[in-house]
Design a binder for these strands. Sequence first.
DNA 1: CGGATGGTTTGATGTAAATCAATGCATTCC
DNA 2: GGAATGCATTGATTTACATCAAACCATCCG
Lengths: 254, 254
Amino acid sequence: MSDMPSCQFESRPRRIVIGAGGAQTDFCTTCSVRPTSVCSVIGPDDISRLSEAAVETIIPPGRGFIEEGAPATDFFNVTSGTVKLFKALPDGRRQITGFASPGHFLGLAVSDNYAFGAEAVDTVRVCRFSRDKMADLLDDFPKLERRLLEEASNELVAAQNQMLLLGRKTARERVASFLLDQMHASQLPGQENGGRLHLPMTRGDIADYLGLTIETVSRTLSWMRSQGMIEVGKGYAITILSVAKLDVLAAGNS
Amino acid sequence: MSDMPSCQFESRPRRIVIGAGGAQTDFCTTCSVRPTSVCSVIGPDDISRLSEAAVETIIPPGRGFIEEGAPATDFFNVTSGTVKLFKALPDGRRQITGFASPGHFLGLAVSDNYAFGAEAVDTVRVCRFSRDKMADLLDDFPKLERRLLEEASNELVAAQNQMLLLGRKTARERVASFLLDQMHASQLPGQENGGRLHLPMTRGDIADYLGLTIETVSRTLSWMRSQGMIEVGKGYAITILSVAKLDVLAAGNS
DNA sequence: CGGATGGTTTGATGTAAATCAATGCATTCC
DNA sequence: GGAATGCATTGATTTACATCAAACCATCCG
């Protein structure tokens, strides 16, 4: 990943180069981006207000920071790393409902309690807002509200895709869909990376995301390797050798 | 269901009694509710603008009115009846991602194409807006935007619950969760109905919603009946005899 | 170094739900 | 009335995936 920050308040995060030795004081703590001429939502005068409202937090891998059912006091914006969102049943069964990457907002819920838990997959940086101040923020920054609505709509589409996957796809189709999604998510616009992926999550996370077991995920990846679709490297590396074959699988020709 | 209309622009639809013989001209075509003193979003002067923007449409049972992948020209608000939203795979497998009842908005997607299909379960009335005019509407009625964000957030929570159901629950747990959800949805505030439900959808719809087959849904309902949990009546009637037993099941003690 | 630890892979077996196959039972329509 | 149609139910059989079990293989750390 590049260390160039992106502005979360723009509808499509725009990447900018930060001049070497540029003064840090003018940066928006919410999105780590210099607001002037880049971020159309906030102007220079607003920086201090947003800075007051947001607290930047670093979360180590594996640490949970939202507990399902706990009072929803805060509202988060992910600025780096990957977060897993999940729901659990009393007996321990888990469903990961999504992975949040930089730019995503967490804790939109209308309810007074979080409807899901959140845990850092790798090292994560978030900006934390008090939900009390959220209403005021929305009133003051109408474009933020538009941005949140857009984000929620996109998540809804993703959730619908995931429901189709969980309800009707076979194990092979699920894993193929997952790999393709990860590929698309990792491809920054106008940038190819030869199908090489660095998945930050464990097999267990993938299993909990796809509604499968660890063993089935592992077996399916092995099968895909045997079919020449992918290459499974050390650690969390996977290389996609044939997007076409995975496409056929993911579309439902199991 | 009562035939008292509810205002969709309020965060919690408020039921009002419409005086006998009241003039129809002052009613908001969007939500079929007299705007004055009831609907805080629109005032009397705004009625004509909204009326121009919205077209009321009646859709017969089984008729589809949103096709997955088609250009997203319109935006809908359901005013009566039940709509099923679904996604399909090329080979015909279907996943119903949700049922939309009066008050729900459809077609929020940011994309230019619908991400899902929609079909009337029973007779449905919707108000249709052109998506071109949506941006203007949002600019003019900020509270509508807040309302949409709230709706999207609620749908997101529902989607997360459904992912847990589809990914990790057993057939019995799924059916139990579904029946309880339907019960809660049908219970208007402060109104008990002795557990009697009139499900508008077929077994096939329920199966496609729960990621099961028709046979499994039918068998599971029969099993629940044998356990004294429910009573299966003629047509689409089901009576819940023991909420407690269903609760235990739905929570994951399969 | 060597044992512990945490994740991954692979194999053998079990089972919940799908599939295949009748039958039942309304409603509609000639 | 009775054939046709469209769900729903119930039974017999199959199967995809879960479960149980055992290696395997890094990395960490005393």
